[in-house]
Nucleic acid binder design. Structure first.
Length: 802
RNA sequence: GGGAUCGUAGCUCAGUUGGCUAGAGCGCUUCGUUUACACCGAAGAUGUCGGGGGUUCGAGUCCCUCCGAUCCCACCA
């Protein structure tokens, strides 16, 4: 025996991957006459580590890519990494804090140097981890979100939008994270329930409710619903005097329909600077607004004696003062939703700031010959079926999201990322892909939301990078001069998690249709989250939930991990992954390994040749052809799980348990080899390492790689012969089961069925009422007889077993 | 408040447009070490398909309703 009885993945995996790379089998060829197939990898954080979620996307995209190659297509799976602006910026800031300094102290340039240094030391890990998962990407086309060409594209799109009036700068209320000192987009705000005291305060003649007394210093408007009869005596615009926290104020009455008369007293005061709803009310009525809390989360001089205090510290003191002035009517416990930053967890404090926005409502996009708004185009590409979402139900949530879409705040007050290509000199503003000529220009300090650059990912990565510095070329010309773009865009499939449908998928649609006039991809396949066994999210803060794909891959083999992930996947649904599933699939790998060992034993290094003779030969070839077609069809429809099941049962049940067993009596080594050869090809997209190892160990194609093989040649078989084996198979099965028990079981089922029918009949009122008395009686007797029969069968079965 | 998904064997889940007696893996019971594999083989037990109603010749599958779980969006001061 050449092969050991147990497959040891660790001995082969690295070597096999290098062979693939050296063989150039993952390299795309845009000039090929073959049909092109392309996937853009969702770029993982360049300094991150591979977690189960990334392992899942690697497996699914790798299966699609390898399968497409087998179908004879020219495949580009383009890998890349993301600069993860906010996360990285934040991390480096923390490191600086540990050294007792901060980014503002050391300045922009020094800070960016720090980031580069940090990033540089961590960049290679994620790439080698992707490779160890078996990812068959074209590494020669690896991209990075801060590559010069990608930066160029960001600037080109920004300037184009700016010139089209789609980007504007304005004072808006935004979500401010005082900890990270940056804005957070609406989609990145998460809400957490929190119990907090809810105060009812006396404000002039009114009682108002609030959970945030610390924002109330500047309040000088009381708002109520125009139809609220309780307050009919007060007119819009009336003013009155009220004694307030730091003395008397003059307040004005505002009537607005945003107020819910049933909540609290139906009256509230507003703080336009620090609340979204209040801001909108103030906008509608042209009211004054005043900042109460600064960007560090401290109270401003308007707070009087409380100025300079952090809000958490100030709140109880303010309440105390209100109490002492007899302004607190009551306080009660109340659960409200606290807004938090999804990336970093700081409490969001809305602020009014000058920010850059993308206007989603201005009709400035030429789409299919019509001038439409970004929002309309985003809707149209799905409605018209240009882009298909899998599973389809996400279309509904997508439409809902589009309908509620507000202008996209794209400026971030961090330093790591694509800087906004806007320069100022006094009153002058310059927008350009290159800095303006002349002295005294100063670039906007903000960077762009990381999703702005990610939104261009499917095509900015396909432009010839060597053209990045050629500013004579327009964006259209850049695209036109890029063979990759022509061959691979729109991409065939976007495979990603449903959790970033809005962040990323929707933004790619927005930016790509606008900038290139093409859709970014034809199909979006959305997979679910990989959860821990109990259903909990795998998260760093809860180490018990985490299964490290790298550790598991090393221990049980990457193929076992890949199979475990595929076996649990279904479109749009989360899966629970326990180590048990990995073990099962490790066993499955070993099964395949031992089929190969057996084949090697009986066939030696004889070439596989398909000359079926026995019924079993025809039978297994029949099964094999069903498998080959089935897997193709399933993968075309993204039914990964089904394809996996077919493979599993073919290999274990049909091939190992029946064909190999039966061939022990009548060995047909050449057919066995041929079947195994085809099986390896079918299995390869799912379990690339072990299949490649067997392929080479069996020495059929010493120079060729399995990864380079196209789909197996169909082998002729005879259906009647195959049917004959079905019969022998049935006979063997019948022989295995002891006679008496078999008979009893059949009888038991028959009795069971008749009991059911009788019970059904007796349960039918029509039957009871209309049928003759005797008939109903006899039915009852029959039923009882059958039940007795069943009981006796069961007792006999028990005794036979005992 | 709006929406989505799920509820099938002890556990994790399949079940495509409604179609024979509802499946898989693990686990469990019994037997077996037959020279590919104990990371094995054979046999076996286990289900009111969440409850109720409807459409149909026929419903796990379609419709209504209720119960339970999860998630997303919006958010009331």
């Amino acid at each position: 025996m050449k092969l050991p009885s147990v497959y040891e993945p660790g001995k082969y995996e690295n070597e096999v991957y290098s062979l693939w790379e050296e063989g150039g089998v993952f390299t795309a060829d845009p000039d090929s006459s073959k049909e092109h197939f392309s996937i853009s990898m969702p770029p993982p954080n360049e300094t991150g580590t591979l977690h189960m979620g990334s392992a899942l996307f690697v497996v699914l995209q790798d299966i699609l890519s390898r399968h497409a190659r087998q179908q004879g297509k020219d495949v580009l799976w383009l890998p890349g990494t993301d600069h993860a602006a906010l996360a990285t910026d934040n991390l480096v800031e923390k490191r600086l804090a540990e050294q007792g300094t901060s980014k503002h102290q050391i300045g922009r340039e020094a800070f960016l140097k720090e980031v580069q240094q940090f990033v540089g030391g961590n960049r290679d890990r994620i790439v080698s981890q992707l490779k160890s998962m078996g990812a068959s990407c074209d590494w020669s086309r690896m991209r990075y979100t801060l590559d010069p060409m990608l930066n160029r594209c960001v600037n080109e799109v920004f300037v184009k939008m700016y010139n089209d009036g789609l980007i504007y700068r304005g004072e808006r209320i935004i979500n401010w994270d005082p900890n990270l000192e940056t804005t957070v987009s609406d989609d990145e705000v998460v809400h957490k329930e929190e119990k907090a005291p809810f105060y009812t305060l006396q404000y002039g003649p009114f009682q108002i409710g609030t959970a945030r007394p610390e924002t109330k210093f500047g309040d000088k408007y009381v708002v109520m619903h125009p139809d609220d009869k309780r307050y009919a005596q007060y007119k819009h615009g009336d003013s009155f005097e009220a004694e307030w926290i730091n003395g008397p104020v003059t307040a004005t009455i505002i009537k607005d329909e945003a107020i819910d008369p049933d909540f609290g007293t139906g009256v509230m005061t507003i703080t336009p600077w620090h609340d979204h709803t209040d801001f909108e009310i103030a906008e509608r009525h042209g009211l004054e607004r005043e900042q109460i809390i600064d960007f560090d989360g401290k109270l401003l001089p308007v707070a009087g004696e409380f100025a300079g205090m952090k809000i958490d510290a100030a709140r109880p003191k303010i309440v105390e003062k209100l109490k002492s002035k007899n302004l607190v009517v009551k306080s009660e416990d109340y659960t409200h939703n606290l807004a938090l930053n999804d990336r970093g967890g700081g409490v969001i404090d809305p602020q009014i700031m000058l920010q850059w926005f993308v206007d989603v409502n201005r009709p400035a996009v030429n789409w299919k010959g019509q001038l439409r708004s970004l929002r309309e185009v985003m809707r149209a590409v799905i409605e018209d079926g240009d882009i298909k979402l899998v599973p389809k139900r996400f279309e509904r949530t997508y439409y809902r999201w589009i309908d509620n879409l507000r202008d996209w705040n794209i400026s971030r007050q961090i330093w790591w990322g694509h800087r906004i290509p806007i320069w100022y000199k006094g009153e002058e503003v310059y927008a350009g892909t290159q800095p303006p000529k002349g002295q005294g220009w100063e670039q906007d300090a903000d960077t762009l939301d990381t999703w702005f650059s990610s939104a261009l990912w499917t095509w900015s990565t396909l432009i010839n990078p060597s053209l990045a510095g050629d500013f004579n070329l327009s964006l259209d010309e850049l695209l036109a001069r890029s063979p990759d773009y022509k061959a691979y865009h729109p991409t065939s499939v976007m495979e990603t998690g449903w959790d970033i449908l809005f962040f990323w998928v929707a933004r790619m649609i927005l930016a790509t249709t606008y900038a290139t006039g093409q859709i970014p991809f034809k199909t979006v396949y959305l997979h679910g989250l990989v959860r821990a066994e109990g259903g909990k999210k795998m998260s760093k803060s809860d180490p018990d939930t985490i299964i490290d794909p790298m550790g598991v891959g090393q221990k049980y083999g990457t193929d076992a991990l890949r199979l475990a992930l595929v076996s649990g996947v279904s479109a749009g649904s989360d899966q629970r992954l326990g180590i048990g599933r990995v073990v099962d699939n490790r066993n499955f790998c070993n099964k395949l390994w031992n089929i190969a060992r057996y084949t090697e034993g009986v066939a030696g290094e004889a070439q596989p040749k398909a000359a079926p003779k026995t019924p079993a030969d025809h039978w297994i070839l029949n099964k094999l052809s069903i498998l080959t077609d089935g897997i193709s069809a399933d993968l075309d429809n993204f039914h990964f799980h089904q394809a996996y099941q077919k493979l599993y049962h073919f290999v274990w049940d049909d091939l190992a348990d029946w064909y190999v067993e039966s061939s022990k009596k009548e060995p047909r080594p050449s057919v066995l080899s041929a079947v195994l050869r085809s099986t390896l090809i079918c299995a390869h997209p799912f379990m690339p390492f072990i299949t490649e190892v067997i392929w080479r160990e069996l020495g059929w194609d010493q120079q060729g790689l399995l990864a380079a093989q196209t789909k197996p040649e169909p082998i002729e078989f005879n259906r009647d012969e195959s049917g004959k084996f079905e019969e022998t198979r049935a006979a063997i099965l019948a022989e295995r089961a002891p006679d008496r028990i078999k008979k009893l079981l059949a009888e038991k089922q028959a009795v069971h069925r008749s009991i059911e029918t009788l019970e059904k009949r007796l349960a039918n009122q029509e039957y009871i009422n209309k049928a003759p008395e005797e008939l109903v009686q006899s039915t009852r007797q029959e039923l009882n007889a059958q039940k007795d029969q069943l009981r006796s069968i069961e007792t006999e079965l028990e005794s036979l077993k005992g």
